[in-house]
Write a protein that binds this DNA or RNA. Structure first.
Length: 890
RNA sequence: GGGCGCAUAGCUCAGCGGGAGAGCACCGGCCUUACAAGCCGGGGGUCGUAGGUUCGAAACCUACUGCGCCCACCA
């Protein structure tokens, strides 16, 4: 029923209302794409490296080429785009550089899966064909996210799009490798690394996550099973590694084993004898105080092995199968072998104890999810000590700022405890290690312009670099490094980096290390901002694994980019996770609608920015009040940007627009417009001015709707390039604000009284106001009557009810002809409640003032404030008592 | 095992030494010529627990409880 009426009404509006260029409804889906294209075509997003203007630059955290837009991107991009658009409006030479990461491991996973579906694999097709295939895939399907970014409104400089595998960036990678190599900061060594049997590659520590698993702890006896010789009981969660044991270690001071140190003991199942050694690492309190030592498959044991020069047999192949042990277990998967060996030992009576389940922590490959296997292999490393020290120092010295500042602690945790970084991967998609080996053991590292040696026996290293190696160069490789390009000159160091706290270690630290190193101590960014993760409305992290992931595109379709962005920004407290729900996005869309309608109202009443706002002495209190409030809004927003307080910025703009501008000023403006003449003209210019400012302030957050509204309102070319608002500088009038606040209170009190009395909101009531003159509010009487729905007392006016409203400017008495039964009991109840509140306030303040310690020790301004509150409470109590006494008896 | 963070209204969160706040949700009333995607009015919290510091604590300190996160080579 209501629905039918609404549709009818909309039609009527379209027919009769003239608001040229502004349709009655905001339809984001229809308009956004067109607006975006117009911005791109106009070249607004392009930053000019030859400009004299102050630079603002930011690089995108490059999304994986395999990826599509998820809520985390939408959030991150909302933050970055907001900063970028504001900087552009501030007149800075602005670049937000877009691009993608080649995501070595992710691409392997994806393309290999495709190959598997075709019954093929990369090994049989060979390296060249595989890489060719990946490029094909990339060109056809990669980078879906880039077009999705347009939907969000990301104001990136498309002329500068980069890819970590493109030619320029590959040159940068090779150059960096050579620089570090020549400096001795890259080295090759046989080390125990995190090995992924699924990927058949080593991984860095960062790509390993530890998870609690329910395994088993098996204690087993090495050596003799009877009294014929010595034996030792050792325990392990990975029984299969016993095949690679080359010693049993005990603590040097452990009396129990002192006689055995230096002797040999039988390693079961292998026929080998291994030494019993003494090493400080062993904790005599733990278990039996004896440890099996498997140097090639355990980090601790590796170190023990090095100290004692033990043999280090590798007993597993690249896929995690037992190998080279000469036992029946060769060829068996490590987890099968775990059971088979345990049972073989049991058959020999060697299992002394078993704990199952035994909860312990096991490293897993972050990408491929399986447990990693520590494995001895020849890999390339970056020596991080000096680089990490410099990265730490850059933040400690203040050269690079961290937001939120508390996050610096986490950053130092990393820089101060970084291990050498394993950068080689036994994969094919990525930057190949620029090292060639010769027939006689030669090893040469080449820069991008050097010719690789040819001839028999020469070959290039087979491995590629960790994806994060190229990501670490992103803030300068993308601007042309190693060439000294004008862009690099202009835009490096970048102004700010915005990324999630979850990749602080993966990425931020590496950019810091590489940037400082390659750019002569100039950091990659002046500030880095770490944001939180997107969560659902119950605080659960949004993601596939939780089943609560929402495709941002569906919300973009339904609610528009502005609504999604505004919702994400509104939840963006520094460093904190951001909850989001569809309901809230809908709320943001309604905010857009509100803004739309307010602008329509202003336009239909002739609001314009063409005429300047008249001088203050020609303006009403309401005008001055809203103008002053607009000024404070501008300065508040500016200072909030300093701390990246996006949530408060959004909140402040929302509150100003809805509560102050729409709910109060627009209503007061209606009264002023009705007066006509100069008053109405002034009102029109105030309306135009305030809207102009608000739309510009909102533009970085909600670019699309503000563009439509602002261009219509001002006739300007685009709000994208409009100047950022500044405080107008006109003399503020705090007294006008005080009077308007009094007017607001008076109106609210009358409305509340009416509501309590059961009067309908639309019903006009005759009323007589007195005391208003004395309170200095006479000029606002029309506004009060209009907003509180009161009419002038007519003939035969008889007051049937009255209320008194205490204002800071005086008390106003309102006598109303409610011409009907007023609800005396409701009013009595309400007054009683108010009285209670006032009495409590009086008691509290009196208690404080009666406390000599308080009066003696508290600062004078606090005491004065309490005194004021006490006086106000006394007056309020008297007023309420008078009103209660005036109520008719029941 | 080490470290960090958070517990404030039904939900999500601000506030971080001097009157407990916002949005949404909720209750009541309204088609009021920008907006029913709206307007007007209203209810709702011993600020996790227990101590301490202070004239004064949601805020500072300590302990505890409960969540969450990060790191780690405990066989």
């Amino acid at each position: 029923m209501c629905e039918v009426r609404r549709i009818g009404w909309v039609t009527e509006t379209q027919a009769h209302q003239h608001t040229p260029d502004l349709p009655p409804k905001w339809n984001p889906a229809e308009v956004e794409g067109e607006l975006y294209q117009r911005w791109v075509d106009a070249g607004y997003f392009h930053g000019d490296e030859n400009s004299e203007k102050q630079p603002f630059s930011v690089v995108i955290p490059p999304p994986n080429v395999t990826g599509s837009l998820h809520m985390g991107h939408a959030f991150e991009h909302s933050l970055i785009d907001t900063l970028t658009r504001r900087a552009r409006m501030q007149g800075k030479e602005t670049v937000w550089l877009p691009g993608m990461d080649h995501a070595s491991i992710a691409v392997h996973a994806l393309v290999e899966k495709q190959l598997a579906a075709e019954g093929r694999n990369r090994r049989e097709m060979g390296r060249e064909a595989f890489v060719e295939r990946v490029w094909q895939w990339k060109n056809e399907y990669g980078g879906k996210i880039l077009s999705q970014m347009r939907r969000l409104g990301d104001s990136v400089d498309w002329d500068r799009e980069r890819f970590t595998m493109d030619e320029g960036l590959s040159r940068a990678v090779q150059t960096m490798f050579k620089l570090l190599y020549d400096d001795g900061l890259i080295y090759r060594a046989e080390r125990l690394v995190n090995w992924s049997p699924v990927l058949r590659s080593g991984l860095s520590d960062a790509e390993v996550t530890h998870k609690e698993v329910e395994g088993e702890l098996v204690s087993m006896r090495y050596g003799a099973l009877d009294d014929s010789g010595p034996s030792i009981v050792v325990a392990t969660t990975r029984v299969e590694t016993m095949l690679g044991d080359t010693a049993v270690a005990v603590h040097p001071d452990d009396e129990r084993y002192r006689d055995m140190v230096g002797t040999e003991i039988e390693l079961p199942l292998t026929g080998r004898r291994i030494p019993v050694i003494a090493d400080e690492h062993v904790d005599p309190e733990f278990g039996t105080g004896a440890v099996k030592v498997t140097p090639a498959h355990d980090p601790n044991d590796f170190e023990i092995g090095q100290r004692h020069h033990l043999p280090m047999p590798t007993i597993m192949d690249e896929e995690g199968r037992i190998a080279n042990t000469g036992t029946e277990f060769d060829g068996m998967d490590r987890f099968e072998a775990r059971v088979a060996i345990r049972e073989a030992l049991r058959a020999q009576g060697r299992i002394v104890a078993e704990k199952r389940p035994y909860l312990h922590s096991v490293g897993h490959s972050e990408r491929s999810k399986e447990p990693i296997e520590p494995r001895l292999s020849l890999q390339w490393f970056v020596a991080v000590d000096s680089l990490a020290a410099a990265a730490g120092e850059a933040v400690r010295s203040g050269a690079v700022r961290v937001n939120p500042p508390e996050m610096a602690k986490r950053y130092f945790d990393w820089t101060d405890n970084l291990h050498d970084w394993c950068i080689s991967r036994q994969l094919w998609w990525g930057h190949r290690i620029p090292v060639w080996y010769g027939p006689d053991g030669e090893m040469v590292c080449l820069g991008p312009d050097e010719q690789p040696p040819t001839g028999p026996g020469w070959h290039q290293d087979e491995d590629v670099l960790d994806t994060w190696f190229s990501s670490g160069l992103w803030p300068f490789s993308t601007f042309g490094w190693p060439e000294k390009t004008p862009s690099l000159e202009k835009f490096y160091p970048t102004t700010v980096l915005v990324t999630g706290y979850d990749i602080l270690f993966f990425w931020v630290i590496r950019m810091m290390m590489f940037g400082l190193y390659a750019m002569n101590g100039q950091p990659p960014f002046r500030t880095f901002v770490l944001h939180g993760m997107v969560r659902d409305q119950f605080g659960k992290k949004m993601g596939k694994s939780n089943g609560n992931a929402v495709d941002p595109i569906t919300w973009l379709d339904t609610y528009g980019a502005d609504a999604l962005r505004f919702t994400l920004l509104r939840g963006a407290n520094p460093g904190a996770d951001v909850p989001i729900s569809e309901e809230w996005v809908d709320g943001s869309r309604r905010f857009g609608t509100k803004l739309w309608n307010a602008t329509r109202f202003a336009l239909s009443n002739g609001a314009t920015v063409a005429t300047p706002v008249p001088p203050r002495d020609e303006l009403t209190d309401a005008d001055r009040w809203i103008l002053d409030l607009t000024d404070s809004l501008v300065s508040d927003v500016d200072s909030l940007y300093e701390g990246f307080e996006f949530a408060k910025i959004a909140e402040g703009l929302y509150h100003f627009t809805w509560d102050e501008f729409c709910d109060w000023y627009l209503e007061l403006a209606k009264v002023q417009l009705a007066e006509g003449g100069a008053r109405a003209d002034a009102t029109r210019s105030v309306l135009g001015h305030v809207l102009d400012v608000v739309l510009r302030l909102l533009h970085p957050l909600t670019p699309f709707i503000t563009e439509s509204l602002w261009t219509t309102l001002t006739g300007g070319e685009s709000v994208v390039i409009a100047p950022w608002p500044t405080v107008s500088g006109a003399t503020a009038d705090p007294e006008a604000a005080v009077r308007i606040e009094s007017v607001q209170k008076l109106i609210t009190e009358i409305r509340r009284f009416r509501s309590d009395q059961g009067l309908r909101p639309g019903q006009k009531v005759e009323a007589e106001l007195s005391g208003a003159c004395c309170a200095g509010l006479s000029t606002h009487e029309a506004a009060v009557r209009s907003l509180a729905r009161l009419t002038e007392p007519g003939e035969g006016f008889t007051a049937t009810a009255s209320l008194e409203v205490a204002l800071s400017t005086g008390t106003v008495t309102v006598r109303l002809d409610t011409s009907g039964a007023i609800d005396v009991e409701a009013e009595r109840k309400r007054l009683a409640k108010d009285l209670g509140v006032a009495e409590k306030e009086l008691a509290q303040t009196e208690a404080k003032l009666g406390n000599p310690k308080f009066v003696g020790k508290a600062p004078a301004d606090v005491v004065a404030k309490i005194q004021t509150r006490k006086d106000a409470a006394s007056i309020e109590i008297e007023r309420i008592k008078v009103q209660i006494a005036a109520l008719p008896q029941a």
